[in-house]
């Protein structure tokens, strides 16, 4: 049941055709897991918090550095040296005190991934490395919950939504390929765009509105200001999801 305050707060989005009180109730009941409170995690968490997602669990083991501040808008100068989880929870709770924010300062590993995700309804991938992205993809598939992928490099970005057993997963796209982890170039506007696409997909999934970005890898090239879609299919030999029957 929405409170009078929530009815006012979310009035403009509840006006969207098909959204209404029902859509807002669904957002309020949802538990979203965000892996990473960096360049992507910042806009994802901010826009999901202000949209009224009931519980946001955000995990990041890092501390804030000056060089993060061109893009990681959850954090500011006064947070330098502190845990990203702490500045994330402070900023998000200030933006919307009506939602529950659980911020955890831990590294996501094989051993704790499932426990960290716990009973979340979905996983949003805002990581900065491929191995953890694969780990989260596999965790989402094992738990049978949707996975919302996003990644950035320079002025370029990608996004894709994975519904386990129904659409191609991250491993179906990249086939377990590994690339060396290096410091990557990026400007804040790129994760802002991609993170907002991921947050939009989350809201669409929870409210049941629109068509999801499944079996399509969306590529954004800001320098040419072009969005390109690549068709992707489930790989029956995929080590992550190949054993799942099509739903």
């Amino acid at each position: 049941m929405l409170t009078e305050r929530e009815l006012q707060r979310y009035d403009r989005q509840m006006m969207i055709y098909g959204f209404g009180d029902e859509g807002q109730e669904k957002l309020k009941k949802a538990k979203v897991f965000i892996a990473g409170a960096g360049g992507l995690g910042s806009p994802i968490a901010i826009y999901l918090a202000v949209a009224g997602i009931g519980t946001i669990r955000i995990v990041d083991h890092d501390t804030v550095e000056l060089s993060n501040l061109n893009r990681q808008v959850l954090h500011q100068d006064e947070n330098i040296g502190g845990e990203k989880a702490a500045s994330a929870v402070a900023k998000l709770q200030k933006l919307n005190p009506d939602v529950r924010i659980e911020a955890i300062s831990e590294t996501i590993t094989d051993d704790n991934a499932s426990q960290l995700v716990a009973d979340s309804d979905l996983i949003v991938d805002a990581m900065d490395n491929l191995p953890t992205r694969y780990l989260l993809n596999r965790t989402a598939i094992q738990k049978g919950i949707p996975f919302f992928h996003g990644a950035v490099y320079g002025f370029e970005g990608r996004a894709m939504t994975v519904i386990p057993g129904k659409s191609a997963c991250l491993n179906c796209v990249y086939h377990g390929a590994a690339v060396p982890r290096e410091k990557f170039p990026v400007i804040g506007v790129t994760p802002a765009v991609i993170g907002c696409i991921q947050a939009t997909e989350v809201i669409k999934y929870i409210t049941g509105l629109g068509e999801l970005l499944t079996n399509r890898l969306l590529n954004y090239d800001a320098l040419s200001m072009k969005f390109t879609e690549f068709k992707v299919n489930r790989d029956p030999t995929c080590e992550h999801c190949g054993n799942l029957q099509s739903g």
């Binding site: 960096g38 360049g39 900065d128 491929l130 992205r133 996003g150 490099y153 690339v179 990557f184 994760p191």
Partner: peptide, 8 residues
């Protein structure tokens, strides 16, 4: 030609 990106 699509390259794998992993940054966040």
């Amino acid at each position: 030609i699509v390259f794998i990106i992993y940054g966040g």
